[in-house]
Amino acid sequence: MTEQPTDPTAPDVTTEAVNDDPQAAQPGAAADEQETPTEGTAADEVADAGVGQAAPETDLAAERLADLQRLQAEYVNYKRRVDRDRVEVKQSAVVEVLTGLLPVLDEIHLAREHGDVVDGPFKAITDKLEAALGKYGLVPFGAVGEPFDPTQHEALMHAEWNPDDENLPSDATTTTVVTVLQPGFKAGDRVLRAARVAVADPT
């Protein structure tokens, strides 16, 4: 076997030196380690870019949410107002009809005072009419012996106190109703007409 000539100027390389130096055994390792990019650099750049783009969208979503909440509040207030107005309109219509029928009820009251509403068809008609009006909250009030109340009674006469009148309370100490000229009427808590009465002061 022919021996290769040796170059006297070449450095001496021994097997031990190569085995002792890992980088020498892997000549590309150092280069690869230097070329490896810093971890997270590209991801951070993408994240930073995303943050800048998401902020306007977040502000727009918050603005739209505020608009929606304002519209919902306006709708709730509108519905409440409409419901309240509907009830008031209905009550006003009922009160107007009942007020228009008060003269008829006054005639029935006078007929009853004169003994004309005792029996027969007329009594049946008056009973049905008063029952029908009662379903709409119409209630008559005013009776002999009640203490005079200016919010409930309209005093048209001032009479003498009659201690023998069994309808008058014996222990009355204030002005008292002694005669009901026209009964008063209420629709619920609303006074349609005060009772027109004659009053007297106990002696």
Rank of each mutant, 00 (worst) to 15 (best):
Q69E: 11
A111R: 08
G40W: 12
A47V: 00
P11G: 12
E146Q: 15
G134H: 08
T151D: 14
E130H: 03
N19E: 15
G100T: 01
D165K: 04
R112L: 03
A10K: 06
E96K: 12
Q34F: 14
A172F: 12
L60K: 06
G100D: 06
D189G: 11
V104K: 03
Q182S: 04
Q72F: 01
F141R: 06
A61P: 08
T41A: 15
K128G: 14
G188M: 05
T2Y: 06
H109W: 15
A187W: 10
E107P: 03
D149H: 05
D171V: 04
P163F: 13
G52P: 00
Q182R: 13
R190L: 13
V144P: 12
P147W: 10
E154D: 12
R81D: 09
K79S: 04
K186T: 09
V197F: 12
A93F: 11
T151Y: 07
R64S: 00
A25T: 06
T2R: 09
F141E: 08
P27D: 01
G184L: 06
V191D: 04
V178S: 03
D20L: 13
V197N: 10
A49M: 03
P11T: 12
K123H: 14
P5H: 09
A93Q: 04
S170R: 14
L129V: 10
V197P: 08
T175S: 09
L98T: 02
E166L: 09
A47G: 00
L71P: 00
D116W: 11
H153Q: 10
Y136I: 04
L168Q: 11
K123D: 15
P169T: 12
R112Y: 01
Q23G: 07
N77P: 08
D83L: 04
T179K: 12
V87H: 04
L68G: 03
D20Y: 09
A61E: 05
A111S: 14
F185W: 15
K79E: 13
Q182H: 08
E154G: 02
V89Q: 10
A155K: 13
D85N: 11
L133H: 01
A195W: 07
D32H: 10
G188T: 05
D164E: 15
I108M: 14
A43H: 01
M157G: 05
A24H: 05
R193V: 10
E57A: 07
P56Q: 03
G134C: 08
E57H: 08
K135M: 13
Q91F: 09
P56D: 10
E63P: 00
T15I: 07
P5G: 10
A47P: 00
Q182F: 07
T203E: 15
H109P: 05
V76D: 12
R112E: 12
L105P: 04
Q182A: 10
P11D: 11
D189K: 09
A198E: 15
A73Y: 02
K123L: 14
L105S: 02
E57T: 01
D67E: 08
A62E: 15
L65G: 06
T175N: 10
S170L: 11
H109M: 11
V197A: 12
E74K: 09
Q72T: 03
H109F: 15
L71T: 01
L68M: 06
P169Q: 13
E88T: 01
V94T: 13
V18C: 02
A25W: 02
L138I: 03
P121L: 14
G142M: 09
D59A: 11
P163V: 13
Y75C: 09
V104Q: 05
T41Q: 11
